[in-house]
Design a binder for these strands. Structure first.
Lengths: 126, 126
DNA sequence: TAAACATATGAATAGTTGTTCATATGAAAA
DNA sequence: TTTTCATATGAACAACTATTCATATGTTTA
């Protein structure tokens, strides 16, 4: 966050900071702004989709529930890497799991995930 | 990517690598896998949403078209930071712009963006 | 109980990314 | 044409993140 002294300095330098704005627009949108925290959470949520390993995991899980080794095999990656990423996906509630003996089966936790993946695919294939 | 020597070593060590997999599941899903490149593109696309500054920009643009300084003012951030991020959003075709004199007005480039934002919001508010 | 094994995790490292600072570009006004 | 100003951009730095390696955990089988 910038302090006032710096802002005044920039204004004096002719930089736009907060002066040459369209006040009507800004005020209107300012009122409609969600809580800061909601937008932070939203970014955290989407960050999960922004890694190719996790996208691949989500994709394969959209096809079938699977154990860690199945995923590692499909993606040709180490067990540890997959496990670390599954932890992230678990924490953000994008996947759920069930235990069966030594094996842990993972699957997508709800339908939003598939919707979001599908919308993304639509966008990039245009 | 791992080489065969390393994989053999790990298997010899008793690590799961590609051995204790459920072959039926893996083979079925393997056939349904999209192009590697498509999944990489998808991750790149979602990476855009995974930053709070960019999420905020997308949100305010969903309310109204706006110039760079309007956004900087709303988000209380420097003009340069916003401009850098708008470039990223432009490159990924998430925003479009029109020029009016010295001012450049930005807006969302299509409906998928709002749908994705909305799905994300639904997910986190559950 | 001991051995085997699927998964989880802490530490370290290499690669990536967002912001700032300084400056450039290009359009409009003087 | 010179100045003003909104926006763009390159370089540098700090912060973050994904993978690997080594090892731990907890469940099953011998």
């Amino acid at each position: 966050m910038k302090d006032l002294v710096k802002i005044e300095q920039e204004v004096a330098d002719g930089v736009c900071e907060f002066i040459h704005v369209h006040e009507d627009i800004v005020k209107k949108v300012e009122k409609a702004m969600p809580e800061e925290q909601e937008l932070l959470d939203l970014a955290e949520f989407f960050k999960i989709f922004g890694d190719s390993t996790r996208i691949k995991i989500l994709y394969v899980l959209s096809q079938s529930e699977m154990c860690v080794c199945d995923i590692a095999s499909l993606l040709m990656m180490g067990q540890s890497a997959i496990s670390h990423q599954l932890r992230v996906l678990k924490q953000m509630r994008l996947v759920k799991f069930r235990r069966e003996g030594k094996t842990v089966f993972y699957s997508l936790s709800d339908g939003h995930i598939q919707t979001i993946l599908a919308q993304g695919m639509e966008h990039i294939s245009e």
